[in-house]
């Protein structure tokens, strides 16, 4: 599989501030790629480098096999881009802006008309006749996604596409991204972990401009345990915590107040089976046993939350 985006030691600094630090990223063509990171991690800057809006201080970035620094409109004709806060000409209407955007890609006539109508429908803006200047942030965001799709891009770059949307709008956008699976490479930055977990095949986590990890969601969860069990015992909590940590299914154990023990586990069923037996064997009481799949949020917090 070829790479839609490949960065090699990509670095961007503003004066003495290092915003992107020797980033090596490989985004497979056809994948839905979540680019995760806390605010200020360097996600938007990476997207600006990918679109040619900014130039790397060092390193390189190749989009669809072409060096962004060396080629101009050749690569831009194959990408769609939505910035974090899309800005439009307020005096235009939504259909006018989509026709304008399509025109910049050389589209015209019936093809442009049909594409515009289809995308207006997708964005829920078909019957909206007012000027963009009067749009809500959510409407602008949906129009932004529509304009990014006007050229049926091979690579869709979305910067925080769902951050301004209400729950229904978010669902629509995520459904739309899911529908593009296999046809378009979707690279989207976000800090909304639920969105990534729902639609992405692969994620990269960025922190302070550095790549913390890049893996498929399945692999990432497996690496950091597949489940989490929270128990609250009455008596012998220290002994039990030590014994839990010695079991094969336990990858990490943490003690809390009032007999609370958190255990990250690789085999949830085995843990659920063994824990009550072990508690009973010590003559302790079991006040609570809660088991569940580990979420991306726990992985994310574990990877980037340590110094916050």
């Amino acid at each position: 599989m070829s790479s839609a985006i490949r960065t090699s030691a990509l670095t961007k600094s503003y004066g003495r501030e290092l915003v992107v630090d020797a980033l090596d990223l490989d985004v497979e063509e056809g994948s839905i790629f979540g680019f995760l990171g806390p605010n200020g991690a360097g996600k938007t800057t990476t997207l600006r480098l990918a679109t040619g809006l900014a130039r790397p201080t060092s390193g390189s970035i190749r989009i669809l096999g072409q060096d962004v620094a060396a080629v101009g409109s050749a690569v831009r004709s194959e990408i769609g881009f939505l910035p974090d806060v899309p800005a439009f000409y307020g005096w235009m209407t939504a259909p006018e802006f989509l026709r304008f955007a399509g025109g910049l890609f050389g589209m015209s006539g019936a093809a442009l008309r049909e594409r515009t109508e289809m995308l207006l429908d997708l964005a829920g803006l078909t019957d909206v006749t007012s000027r963009i200047g009067g749009f809500s942030r959510g409407m602008k965001q949906r129009l932004g996604i529509a304009q990014a799709l006007i050229n049926a891009p091979r690579l869709l770059l979305l910067d925080e596409p769902t951050s301004a949307l209400d729950p229904m709008g978010r669902k629509d956008v995520l459904d739309m991204i899911t529908a593009l699976r296999g046809r378009t490479t979707v690279f989207f930055s976000t800090h909304i972990l639920g969105d990534v977990e729902r639609v992405c095949d692969t994620v990269a986590i960025l922190d302070h401009g550095r790549l913390v990890t890049q893996a498929s969601i399945h692999e990432l969860k497996a690496r950091h345990g597949t489940g989490k069990v929270v128990v609250e015992v009455i008596g012998n909590s220290d002994v039990l915590a030590r014994e839990f940590s010695e079991r094969r299914w336990a990858t990490a154990t943490a003690r809390g107040d009032n007999g609370r023990i958190e255990i990250k586990v690789t085999d949830l069923r085995a843990a659920q089976h063994d824990i009550p037996t072990m508690v009973a064997a010590h003559g302790s009481g079991l006040a609570r046993l809660e088991a569940g799949e580990i979420g991306l949020e726990e992985v994310f917090v574990e990877l980037v939350g340590g110094d916050r």
Partner: peptide, 14 residues
């Protein structure tokens, strides 16, 4: 400054 150039210049417009 308004950001409109970003949507234009990430398309095939020099």
């Amino acid at each position: 400054s308004s950001g409109t150039a970003i949507l234009v210049l990430t398309k095939p417009m020099s």
